[in-house]
Design a protein around this nucleic acid. Structure first.
Lengths: 247, 247
DNA sequence: TGTTGACCCTCACGTTACGTAATGCCTTAA
DNA sequence: TTAAGGCATTACGTAACGTGAGGGTCAACA
């Protein structure tokens, strides 16, 4: 599909699609010989995701990060969006009742505190931040993604392979004790790799926290357990032990 | 109340209040000796209005125009906002059902057209424009308000008085024929005053349309009929006759 | 085959609604 | 009286496009 068709279909402007292309948020799968942008069905699905997130108040930069995460799961995203929309609806209901109260108040039939006059507005200018940062935006993940983006495809591939190798060797140990020398050696390497590959230095506490996240956050669990069911839990335990014993 | 108190109460930033002051959208009723902004309860009510309109997607410039309109009626505004919020809720419901469908679709249990994938998004990047322009944004009103804003208080007062005088003399005639020489003379003056006082020239057709608006748009009707019940209708008829007979 | 007219491209500057310092004056509690 | 916290102004920064300008592309129609 050409730009205008897409734009008309979803009700956004051509310029918007150009913009999304510019910032690398949605690049058309093909371009014709003449340089025309040609969008595929898969592009449309991504666009749907983008618009949903946008509706929820996410800035484009964050949306880009989210949908580019290796562990991005469309169904989970959709469920999250659904949930947030439901909350938003409740929010609107609150505003409606605030309006009703205000009208009553104007007619003098009821009293109203200043605080009540603004109920429904208390999304302190970051509508998405509350739960979103928990679920979709860990600082570390953000930074590592940024780092990832700055690497060439080749570098990314090399790094990915290095990390996969580590995952595999850890997976092999996952039914042994996370406190064994072998496991701890592997986890130490894991710690070193994380610290050297991404632009950040994990404190031991943060490292421990990260391990906890591996089991708390389904998305991580899912992508880690690909290397062996139970790996995420094993890593959490090993990481916690490592952190506690190297202070 | 000082800025930060207000900001905290309604959940917006201090900068936002500064901004609203800068652009003349919400000027604090008082300023302390030291130059501190001091907001009154009335300011808070206005702020509530502003935030409601903002929630509905109105640009600040438009909001400023709306709440500065001489015929601005808070209760009517609140009812409009309520109605629009209800629509917005329906909109969200549509998006939720789109998400549900998409999830079903992913699982392969149902088919889905490209169009269906974007239902709920079709607010062609001007959520408010549709009905809003009808109800809140006549081009002429906009322009005249802009003109009004550029006038000094004194000039405004003089002009207002001139127009009121005309309203009164028209009101006196409202039970006679709108086609009489007297009525037509008064209407001619009305036409001249409108054309000279505001930055625009009404064509005869537009003038006729304006008359129609006086009865179609409650807000106009209300503020006009203050000078005498039925004046709006009388003016519409007189204006139509004037327009038709001076081509 | 030539010529519209609708669509496409890439600059590139404009706009809205604030964010984010920097710098310096109030004010109030310790 | 001094340190902390709030306030003011000035001014540059940012996000997400809007809005032309200048110039190819492509299918249809004369």
């Amino acid at each position: 599909m050409k730009v205008k068709e897409v734009a008309d279909l979803v009700g956004i402007s051509v310029r918007t699609l150009h913009h999304y292309d510019e910032i690398g948020l949605l690049k058309p799968e093909q371009t014709s010989e003449a340089g025309y942008r040609l969008y595929s069905d898969h592009n449309l699905e991504m666009l749907q995701q983008i618009l949903f997130f946008k509706e929820l108040g996410f800035p484009l930069k964050k949306i880009k990060e989210i949908i580019n995460r290796p562990c991005f799961d469309r169904e989970e995203a959709l469920k999250f969006q659904r949930k947030t929309l439901v909350e938003k609806r409740a929010h609107i209901d609150k505003m409606i009742s605030t309006i009703d109260k205000t009208i009553e108040h104007m007619k003098g039939s009821i009293e109203m505190t200043n605080k009540e006059k603004f109920e429904g507005f208390d999304f302190s200018h970051n509508p998405y931040e509350q739960e979103a940062r928990e679920r979709w935006g860990d600082e570390a993940v953000d930074k590592s993604n940024a780092k990832l983006a700055s690497m060439t495809k080749e570098e990314q591939k090399v790094m990915q392979e290095e990390m996969n190798a580590l995952y595999r060797s850890l997976a092999a140990l996952r039914h042994t004790s996370p406190e064994s020398d072998e496991a701890q050696a592997a986890i130490k390497k894991w710690y070193t790799v994380l610290n050297s590959n991404f632009g950040i230095h994990y404190s031991l506490e943060a490292f421990k926290g990260l391990g906890q996240m591996y089991v708390d956050d389904e998305r991580f669990t899912k992508s880690i357990d690909q290397f062996g069911v139970g790996l995420a839990k094993f890593m959490r335990d090993a990481m916690a032990y490592y952190a506690d014993n190297n202070k």
